[in-house]
Design a protein around this nucleic acid. Sequence first.
RNA 1: GGGGCCGUCGCCUAGCGGUCUAGGGCGCCAGCCUUUCAAGCUGGAGGUCACGGGUUCGAAUCCCGUCGGCCCUACCA
Length: 434
Amino acid sequence: MRCGAALSSVFPALRAPHRASTHPFECIGSLHLFLVTDVRVRFAPSPTGELHIGSVRTTLYNFLFARQNKGTLILRIEDTDQERLVPGAIDSVYDGLHWLGIRWEEGPREGGPFAPYVQSERLPLYREHAEALVAMDAAYPCFCTKERLAQMREEQQARKEITRYDRVCRRIAPAEARQRVDDGEPHTIRLKVPETGTIAYHDLVHDDVKWELKDVEDSILLKSDGFPTYHLAVVVDDHVMRISHVFRGDDWLPSLPKHLLIYQAFKWQVPEHAHFPNVLGPDHKKLSKRHGATAVREFRDQGYIPEAIVNFLALIGWAPGTEEEVFTMEQLIQKWRLDQVQKAGGVWDKERLDWFNRVHIRMLDDDDMAERLAAFLPAGASRDVISSSVPLIKERSRPWPTRVRCSSSFSSTSSSTRRSCCWRSASPRRYASC
RNA sequence: GGGGCCGUCGCCUAGCGGUCUAGGGCGCCAGCCUUUCAAGCUGGAGGUCACGGGUUCGAAUCCCGUCGGCCCUACCA
C-alpha cells in the first residue's frame, strides 16, 4: 500500500521545514499533483567518471519499466562525495544515454517539480532530516575523529574481532551531546540501530530477505563536512521525489536494512525495491576497467551500434522465456518483465555482443547505415564510396572502424576484389594487398 | 573474521513436481556457398541441472545440510 503517506510528504513544499523560501528546492507556486499509483523510477549515478556500461544496464531496466507503465524516469546526480568528483562526468551520462536511445523526464537539465536534481544542491534538506532523526532518537551525534576510528579498526583487527563502530558516542547523554553540538564541536550523525530484533523485506527480484539487527552497523548518515552519505540521501530523496520503485544493483542489498530503518523512523511508505544482479567480468567479479572497455564512449568509438548494445545488455539478467532474442528498443519495452529478471549475475561476453552488432547492422537500411558510417571516415571522404560500400560491409559486418579503412580504398575493379576489401582487416600489409 | 546474496553446457539463458532421453542463442567443430573469408546457410560436439541427504509413485524443479563464488563490512557510492 502506497497511500499511507502524509499530505506533507506528497507535497514536499508544504512541509514545515521547507516553508521558508530560502531553500533552492522550493517549488511553491508550481504545485504538482502526484497520484500514489504513479510509477516514478530513477537512476542515480555518482559523477565519478565515464558512464559505465554496467550502470547502463540498470538504467535500461529503469527506462523499460517506466515506459511500459507510462511512468516517469528521473535522473538524479549523487555527488555527495566531494573527493571523487570528476569533471565532465555528467556530460558523459547525458551523451552516453542519449546515444543509446534512453530518455528521461526529470533531471538536472530537464528540470522538474523536485528540482534541483543534484544532491550537492540539496544539502539543507539532508541536514534537517538528520537532525529530525536525532530528535526522534533514531540517530545520534558522533564526535569520534577519523583517526580514532582508524585506530579502533586496527585494534579490532589485531584482536580478530568484527570491525565495527564501537558505539561510544551512542552512550553520551543527549543533553551533553546537544551541548557539544551547539558549542560547534565537529561531529557526524550516525544511525541508531536497535540492538536486537530482525528486519525483513520483500524484494521484487530476490523475494524475502532478512537481517538480524545486531549485525547492522550504526552507519554515518551525515558527514562532518555537512554532506550526507548515500544512506541518508537516497532515502530522503526517494521519498521526497515520490519514487515508487527503487531499482539498483544488488551490491546495495546489504545496506537495505539501514534504509528501511530510516523509512521506519520517519513513518514513511517504503517504495518497492528490486535489486538487479551485476554484470560480471570473465573472472566473475564485478565488471571493471581491468576487464577492458567499460565506458559507453569506448564502445561507440569501437563501432558498436546502440541497438546492439541495448539488445545485448537487456539479455544479461533478463530473458523473455521464448526463443527469440533479437529485439529493438520498442520490442523490449513491450516484452521486458520485472518478474523475469535473473537473480544471479551475468558475465559480459564480448563475442556475443559482436554477434548482436552484426545482426543489428544487417537490420539497418542502407541510407541509415551510410549516415552512421560517415562518422568514422576521414573528413572529405567521398559520399559515393560510402554508399556503394554499404551493402558489402553490411554483409560481413564487424565493428566498424576497421572495415571503414578498407572500404575507403575501394576502386572500380572487379566485384570479387571489392568483396575481399570489405572483410580484410586493416593491418597495413593486408590492406596493401587490396 | 561477520553479514547478505547467488549456484542449469566455456558464456547468455529456457525450465516453476511428470510433456526433460534438460530447449534456444553466442562461441567451438564440420559441411555447403565462395577464387579466398572472420559474413551467410546446414549439421554436430558440449550439461549426471554445485555436492550430499531427505519429501514424493515421480525432483533441475519442494525441504535440510555442505561446498564454492560474489557483494557489503569507509566521514565511497
